[in-house]
Design a protein around this nucleic acid. Structure first.
Lengths: 245, 245
DNA sequence: CGCAGAATTGAGACTGGTCAAAATTTGTGG
DNA sequence: CCACAAATTTTGACCAGTCTCAATTCTGCG
């Protein structure tokens, strides 16, 4: 796991267009007033991070909030002996990097090459006070993230491997449609190990479960990282605890 | 599981003093300006809920935010076949009831008799816009709650039963000291079933693990619901993955 | 074409779950 | 205050799903 300092290295790169500061249709911040957007644009910095590189480490001083413009990022927490839990996958338009005690509560790593907007925490905090619509937007995002985390707690604590995988595929599919991508096939930018660390399983169990769902005709693996949801309804039944369906 | 409508039944009860609207030392909102506190007081309603009663159900229209003044509340999510995951225990001073899509994402039930302050969501939203310090406070709480949920995801996905119990006891102990209660013995207001549903285990495994930790001299059960942390340091090592310690 | 990493498959072990019974605690009425 | 009933907790025996360790196959890339 290489660690670079891409944020400084590339600080003069004009970088990707920050979706959250642009007013196009799929804009993250379409709900912002022109003033709110202008404020965001002024304080933001851009960065590109190569696949597998780290954006920041768990425990580091949290001096920036990030918004993803392209690619996929994983947020993970580590146990002393190396056991890992991925707490979220971040897709374009999502924010990450909020800390309540000055230290990032998780490590953020790029799964694919990513583009992101960087907002210094201090200045973003100021701006929040001046732009109520921005404050409102971030607040809503946090509430949604919390609900998502609680949903994941239900998955981790109470679902079987089969249910976990089914639920995960359906969630990815739903998130894809929200970005106007097709509901199926679903792209899995993350490795089997990442999947396992997200679902509280081992890679072997993830792999076996894919095989099993494939055998049952619920999915088809176009490639290991591209899954066709052949029977989405049956998959939904599995995800809801529908036994052997 | 009885369901009453305590909020309306008791709407004229002067109710418990809302800690979050009072300026005493341990006030939740001590950081609020006098104006912010006054605003909160104006829109709040009080309620008392009996032990085992439901404050609101998962999926219901989320028209109020709550702040707990006394007792303990559990927040849980249900799977179709009855499997349950408790996503948080709420202690005095904590807020709960935020929803991102108009429906509560979990059920809130009183574990003990509880007192709470009720804030209509719509009016609280207005007030947030007028009282920046209130907005800031709630924002910080959400960030902290999210970090807590992610910590719990690590526990649910990657810890053994022994580690889960040790971690839980230490967390409760820490939370107790924050309310100026002694770090040990720790009171467990919730049943073994609640504990199991919070840690992603069964009651039997919870019970067996307590017995095992007791046998190893790390804890002592004064009563089933009162645990003495005899060896907090050893317990900490267990919680961090310290093998057979 | 051949190599390296990733994914899949296989065999056996083990943690935690299930079902059942015993013990303990709590609550109630005499 | 005590006796008894009900609920909760604890313990026991056995089982199943998932993990571990190991080997094999697939995929991408030089």
């Amino acid at each position: 796991m290489r660690v670079s300092d891409p944020l400084h290295v590339l600080s003069n790169d004009p970088g990707p267009v920050c979706r959250c500061c642009e007013a196009d249709d799929h804009s993250v911040c379409a709900s912002l007033t022109p003033e709110g957007m202008r404020g965001l644009r002024v304080i933001r910095g851009n960065a590109r991070v190569a696949a597998q590189d780290t954006v920041f480490h768990e425990g580091e001083a949290a001096d920036s909030i990030f918004s993803l413009t392209s690619g996929t990022v994983k947020l993970s927490k580590l146990l002393g002996d190396g056991r890992r839990q991925i707490v979220d996958f971040v897709f374009p338009g999502d924010f990450f990097g909020f800390a309540s005690d000055g230290a990032y509560p998780y490590t953020a790593e790029a799964i694919t090459p990513v583009g992101l907007c960087r907002f210094p925490t201090v200045r973003l905090t100021q701006l929040r006070a001046e732009a109520p619509d921005l404050e409102r937007l971030l607040f809503e995002r946090l509430v949604a993230d919390l609900a998502l985390a609680q949903e994941q707690m239900l998955l981790l604590g109470r679902m079987t491997a089969r249910e976990k995988i089914a639920h995960f595929l359906l969630t990815l599919s739903r998130r894809a449609t929200r970005r106007n991508d097709p509901a199926s096939p679903v792209a899995l930018p993350m490795s089997r190990q990442d999947l396992a660390d997200y679902l509280g399983l081992t890679i072997e169990t993830v792999s076996r479960t894919f095989t099993q769902l494939k055998r049952d005709g619920l999915i088809a693996l176009v490639r290991p990282e591209l899954v066709d949801l052949s029977e989405p309804d049956a998959l939904r039944r599995v995800a809801e605890g529908g036994g052997s369906d």
